[in-house]
Amino acid sequence: VSVELPAPSSWKKLFYPNKVGSVKKTEVVFVAPTGEEISNRKQLEQYLKSHPGNPAIAEFDWTTSG
Results as ranks from 00 to 15, higher is better:
11 W>P: 04
13 K>P: 03
13 K>A: 02
29 V>Y: 08
60 F>E: 01
23 V>F: 11
39 S>K: 14
53 G>S: 05
23 V>R: 13
48 L>N: 01
44 L>M: 06
44 L>A: 00
56 A>V: 08
53 G>Y: 03
60 F>P: 00
47 Y>H: 02
57 I>R: 04
7 A>F: 06
2 S>A: 15
12 K>S: 06
10 S>T: 09
64 T>L: 12
34 T>P: 01
20 V>Y: 10
12 K>M: 07
30 F>C: 01
31 V>Q: 06
16 Y>H: 06
40 N>G: 07
20 V>W: 11
3 V>D: 06
50 S>R: 09
10 S>D: 15
30 F>D: 00
22 S>I: 09
34 T>F: 02
53 G>L: 05
60 F>M: 01
3 V>H: 09
31 V>L: 11
36 E>D: 08
7 A>S: 06
3 V>W: 08
9 S>T: 13
19 K>D: 09
57 I>L: 13
42 K>Q: 13
22 S>F: 09
53 G>H: 06
8 P>C: 07
11 W>F: 03
40 N>P: 00
48 L>D: 00
57 I>P: 09
6 P>C: 10
46 Q>P: 01
14 L>H: 06
39 S>M: 12
63 T>L: 05
8 P>S: 04
35 G>H: 03
45 E>R: 10
47 Y>L: 00
8 P>G: 06
32 A>Y: 00
39 S>V: 13
42 K>T: 11
27 E>L: 15
43 Q>N: 06
54 N>T: 07
18 N>M: 11
49 K>S: 11
16 Y>I: 08
5 L>Q: 06
45 E>V: 10
59 E>N: 06
37 E>N: 10
60 F>Q: 01
25 K>E: 13
28 V>T: 05
18 N>G: 12
32 A>G: 02
2 S>G: 12
47 Y>R: 00
31 V>W: 05
17 P>R: 10
6 P>F: 07
30 F>Q: 00
9 S>R: 14
62 W>V: 02
18 N>H: 12
58 A>H: 15
43 Q>I: 07
47 Y>S: 00
45 E>K: 10
65 S>L: 10
28 V>K: 01
34 T>Y: 02
7 A>Q: 04
12 K>Q: 11
31 V>T: 04
14 L>C: 11
1 V>F: 11
52 P>Q: 05
54 N>K: 03
25 K>D: 14
35 G>D: 02
15 F>M: 10
6 P>S: 08
30 F>M: 02
32 A>K: 00
64 T>M: 09
19 K>S: 13
3 V>F: 11
51 H>N: 08
32 A>S: 12
27 E>D: 11
9 S>A: 15
41 R>C: 12
53 G>W: 05
13 K>C: 06
4 E>P: 07
52 P>R: 04
20 V>D: 12
63 T>R: 08
31 V>C: 07
40 N>W: 02
42 K>P: 09
27 E>R: 15
43 Q>A: 10
15 F>G: 04
4 E>V: 09
45 E>G: 07
36 E>A: 05
32 A>H: 01
36 E>G: 02
37 E>T: 14
2 S>E: 08
38 I>R: 00
14 L>F: 15
41 R>N: 09
51 H>T: 02
49 K>Q: 12
57 I>Q: 07
21 G>N: 10
9 S>H: 13
4 E>G: 08
55 P>A: 06
62 W>D: 01
54 N>E: 09
65 S>P: 15
41 R>L: 14
33 P>F: 02
45 E>C: 09
19 K>I: 12
35 G>R: 02
60 F>T: 01
37 E>M: 15
20 V>M: 11
46 Q>C: 08
20 V>I: 13
31 V>N: 02
49 K>R: 12
57 I>W: 06
24 K>P: 15
18 N>Y: 11
52 P>F: 04
31 V>Y: 07
41 R>W: 09
12 K>W: 04
28 V>N: 00
51 H>C: 02
28 V>M: 05
43 Q>P: 01
8 P>H: 05
8 P>D: 06
36 E>I: 05
34 T>C: 04
10 S>A: 13
39 S>E: 09
1 V>D: 12
5 L>P: 05
22 S>A: 11
55 P>V: 06
55 P>Q: 04
36 E>H: 07
10 S>H: 14
20 V>F: 12
33 P>L: 02
39 S>N: 11
24 K>W: 11
48 L>R: 00
28 V>R: 01
55 P>K: 03
56 A>Y: 06
41 R>Y: 12
7 A>D: 03
48 L>M: 03
58 A>I: 09
2 S>H: 12
47 Y>Q: 00
15 F>V: 14
35 G>T: 01
45 E>M: 10
66 G>Q: 11
13 K>L: 03
6 P>L: 07
2 S>C: 15
50 S>C: 08
41 R>P: 15
6 P>N: 07
56 A>P: 15
30 F>G: 00
46 Q>D: 14
53 G>F: 05
56 A>G: 12
65 S>H: 11
40 N>D: 12
63 T>F: 05
20 V>N: 12
61 D>A: 05
59 E>C: 10
56 A>D: 15
1 V>G: 12
66 G>I: 11
41 R>T: 10
10 S>M: 14
32 A>N: 01
17 P>M: 13
60 F>S: 01
17 P>E: 11
11 W>S: 04
41 R>S: 11
27 E>M: 14
49 K>I: 12
49 K>V: 10
15 F>K: 03
35 G>P: 00
37 E>F: 15
40 N>A: 05
30 F>N: 00
61 D>I: 07
54 N>D: 02
19 K>G: 14
44 L>T: 00
44 L>Y: 01
37 E>W: 15
64 T>S: 10
54 N>S: 13
9 S>F: 09
55 P>S: 04
39 S>T: 14
16 Y>W: 09
63 T>K: 08
24 K>Y: 09
52 P>E: 06
56 A>I: 07
25 K>R: 13
15 F>Y: 14
13 K>W: 02
44 L>P: 00
45 E>Y: 10
39 S>L: 12
36 E>T: 04
16 Y>N: 05
62 W>K: 01
38 I>Y: 03
13 K>E: 05
58 A>W: 15
33 P>W: 01
9 S>P: 15
27 E>C: 15
1 V>E: 13
23 V>C: 14
34 T>M: 02
3 V>R: 08
63 T>S: 13
32 A>T: 07
40 N>K: 04
61 D>T: 07
25 K>T: 12
7 A>N: 04
36 E>N: 03
43 Q>R: 07
32 A>F: 02
63 T>P: 03
59 E>L: 08
61 D>G: 03
56 A>N: 14
43 Q>H: 08
2 S>R: 13
63 T>V: 06
3 V>M: 08
15 F>W: 15
17 P>W: 14
39 S>H: 14
58 A>P: 04
61 D>V: 06
62 W>R: 01
38 I>A: 02
58 A>S: 15
5 L>V: 05
36 E>L: 04
17 P>F: 14
34 T>R: 01
20 V>P: 13
62 W>M: 02
12 K>A: 05
4 E>F: 09
45 E>T: 08
4 E>L: 10
22 S>Y: 08
